[in-house]
């Protein structure tokens, strides 16, 4: 058994979304814009994948040690959390290099469009993600018992994924039917596994 087996994760959360992206009828834009889009999409898919990259992983796959799973979970969590947190700003970055609305004006318009459900969902998801990140970073300072922590982290993750998937389906530039199905499926199974763990499984610390 390899220490790390990333094949499964990469196929489901990296290759599949990129495949769906290429299959979709999306307009090619500038390299910068497309790079930002792809980075954000990958970040989101991998972040959704976090629902599996925990104790649940070992329920469906048995090719990694739990410590490796935790390592990957932390790596993906911290790095792509940053991408998702800055993505509202990344959206307006290309405006620095082209003519049109000023990036700051564009950003202000985005975050003040409260008649849009998608924007509100996005802001909520963003805040949840921020809390997820900060609490993970300062987990030791929280002095939660492992069980409390797990429920706390799980509930936040659950709330985040619901708001975020909804936000993405409502506003995503690269959303089509297949992409929506994919995201809903990931979220759904992730949540099912999560609930399963909490309701029917009383694990102990690794």
């Amino acid at each position: 058994m390899k220490k790390y087996n990333l094949t499964f994760i990469s196929i489901v959360f990296l290759v599949l979304p990129i495949f769906l992206l290429l299959m979709g009828d999306f307009k090619e834009r500038t390299l910068l814009k497309d790079s930002i889009s792809i980075l954000t999409i990958i970040a989101f898919c991998l972040m959704s994948g976090q629902l599996f990259l925990n104790r649940n992983y070992r329920k469906i796959r048995h090719d990694m040690k739990m410590s490796s799973v935790v390592k990957i979970h932390k790596f993906i969590g911290y790095s792509f959390l940053v991408v998702l947190l800055v993505h509202p700003f990344l959206i307006v970055v290309p405006r620095f290099f082209e003519s049109g609305v000023e990036p700051i004006d564009a950003f202000m318009t985005i975050i003040t469009t409260f008649n849009s459900l998608g924007v509100i969902l996005g802001i909520i998801a963003w805040c949840l993600l921020l809390v997820l990140g900060i609490t993970s970073m300062f987990r030791n300072k929280l002095k939660f018992s492992y069980k409390t922590w797990r429920v706390f982290h799980g509930i936040l993750a659950f709330a985040f994924i619901v708001f975020a998937v909804w936000h993405v389906i409502d506003l995503g530039r690269h959303i089509n039917f297949l992409m929506s199905v994919y995201l809903i499926a990931i979220a759904f199974f992730g949540i099912v596994l999560l609930l399963n763990t909490y309701l029917f499984n009383s694990s102990t610390r690794v």
Partner: peptide, 9 residues
């Protein structure tokens, strides 16, 4: 129009 946030600008 892809990725519209409905700001009406």
């Amino acid at each position: 129009i892809n990725g519209c946030i409905g700001c009406e600008t």
